[in-house]
Design a protein around this nucleic acid. Structure first.
Length: 451
RNA sequence: UCCUCGGUAGCUCAAUUGGCAGAGCAAUCGGCUGUUAACCGAUGGGUUCCUGGUUCGAGUCCAGGCCGAGGAGCCA
């Protein structure tokens, strides 16, 4: 009788194969050998598993091959799965006793990324290889799950996906600097910084919509929370006021966090994330007005003995919050907190004024806990055509370019609201990592477009 | 754009007052039956970011530049 080939399995399902012979197709992440005993830590894209070979149990030549296989060589490992508490991996606790071993390609020379520490510049230069290490692999798996959860919730809650253009005719909000590019005979086109204005048209056809795509900001920002190219999901809802907006946001964010907890437990644990912190991220979220937040900050500033913090927290009514303010505010809560009712002057032109207080807008930012800061920004939009035109003129925006946008308010205008969620900031918060550059496969920073 | 700090072996870093350029890891070879970034021994490995200056002598001091990091502003 012909010998049956063992099944090729994924390391994440290894617990189901204890006692069976299986094949793992992957890459050697680490190798160590101790005389007649050799250990390989093999990754296959779904996890990491330790494979063990004993000299004497297998062909001596094969043992030498295993004991000397260079890091990152591609291999086919055949062996029997067994549970062993000592075995590292993801999920750990299982290992494979090697019975067969085939080298697909043996790495020649040095693999640049060792298991020792590296500097950020070196790692960034080798991002194409860096994504293989467990921490980066885990972060990017969480990112994928977050994006899946975003789409899942919106698709299941009556939202229609509307892809808004990436090449746009003019400044959408007139605030940030845009990337320009030559556009045939039409002059300069700009890379989108938001799909919101288009979504405001889309809701009149589909009621609830979202766009999801890359966003480009040519700002010379150089901080741990800024990318030049980042991904943003922007839901927009007809017949929705500021309160309705906050309810949707908290349901949406809660779903994302709980879905990651369900599907990426091992990844989060491998990143050292405290899961209990994430487990309490369930709607409703606390809400605080800009006025009250400002009062709290003034209080904190008065109480601190740190002269540096005192200086950094210096703020007057009308100013937008900077990151020091956001950090101090979020320390007061263990859930994300809504800050609503920002001064009109600090926000974009299209925001509906507060009833009876024209200097305040019906705007709301959601600040993530643990100092991660703003992850969403949204507002109720102006629905009156005359007020909108007035605002466009006040902001000295090109009236012609906004003709279609004002037009929307003439044909069945309704109260409507929307927000934008920054995917990378959300990934950074949920994973508990310091810098946004690790939350996207190939980050674009002010001083980096390679690789 | 502003403020602060940094640039030495493939990587991470050390080098006393200005006095012979060093270590660990990685690579190559050898040893070891439970390693967790294994360990032990051996071998090879340098434009000290660049340009100019001071000095008998510069990785070290001075001037200018380049590159990077952290923070600020702006924002998601």
């Amino acid at each position: 009788m012909e010998a049956k080939m063992p099944p090729v399995i994924q390391t994440r399902e290894i617990a189901d194969y204890v006692g069976q012979e299986v094949i793992i197709r992957g890459w050697v992440y680490n190798r160590t050998h101790k005389g007649k005993l050799a250990f390989l830590l093999v990754r296959d894209g779904y996890g990491f598993v330790q494979c063990v070979a004993f000299k004497g149990e297998i062909d001596p030549e094969l043992f030498e091959t295993i004991a000397h296989i260079p890091q990152e060589s591609s291999v086919l490992v055949t062996g029997t799965v067994r549970a062993d508490r000592r075995a590292p991996g993801l999920p750990g606790g299982f290992e494979i006793g090697i019975t067969g071993f085939e080298v697909v390609q043996a790495v020649v020379g040095e693999y640049p990324i060792s298991l020792k520490e590296h500097g950020v510049d070196f790692l960034a230069d080798h991002r194409h290889l860096w994504i293989r290490v467990p921490s980066q692999w885990a972060i990017l798996r969480v990112r994928s799950t977050i994006i899946s959860a975003i789409r899942e919730w919106l698709d299941n809650n009556g939202f229609t996906l509307m892809d808004t253009p990436i090449l746009t005719p003019a400044a959408c909000e007139g605030t940030t600097t845009l990337f320009g590019t030559e556009y045939f005979d039409e002059g300069t086109a700009y890379l989108a910084q938001s799909g919101q204005l288009y979504n405001e048209a889309n809701i009149f056809a589909f009621s609830k919509v979202y766009c999801f795509g890359p966003t480009f900001r040519a700002e010379k920002s150089k901080t741990r929370r800024h990318l030049i190219e980042f991904w943003m999901v922007e839901p927009e809802m007809a017949f929705c006021d500021l309160d309705g907006l906050m309810e949707i946001e908290e349901q949406f964010i809660s779903h994302i966090v709980q879905r990651v907890l369900r599907d990426c437990r091992n990844e989060l644990l491998s990143l050292g994330r405290d899961l209990s912190v994430l487990e309490q991220i369930v709607a409703p979220f606390p809400r605080i007005s800009y006025d009250d937040a400002l009062a709290k900050l003034t209080e904190i500033r008065a109480e601190t003995d740190d002269p540096e913090l005192k200086e950094r927290l210096n703020i007057q009514w009308g100013d937008d919050f900077g990151s020091p303010h956001e950090t101090e505010l979020t320390k007061l809560f263990d859930k994300p907190v809504f800050v609503y009712g920002y001064p009109t002057g600090a926000k974009a032109f299209y925001m509906e004024p507060w009833p009876g207080r024209p200097d305040v807008s019906k705007s709301v930012d959601l600040l993530a806990p643990e100092g991660y800061g703003e992850i969403t920004g949204g507002s109720e939009r102006i629905s009156d055509p005359d007020l909108l035109l007035e605002r466009i003129r006040e902001h000295e925006l090109p009236e012609d370019a906004f003709r279609w946008y004002i037009d929307l308010r003439h044909y069945g205008s309704v109260p409507h609201s929307g927000f934008g969620l920054g995917v990378e900031r959300t990934v950074a918060w949920i994973c508990g990592i310091d810098h946004i550059r690790e939350t996207i496969p190939y980050p674009r920073l002010i001083n980096r477009v390679y690789p």
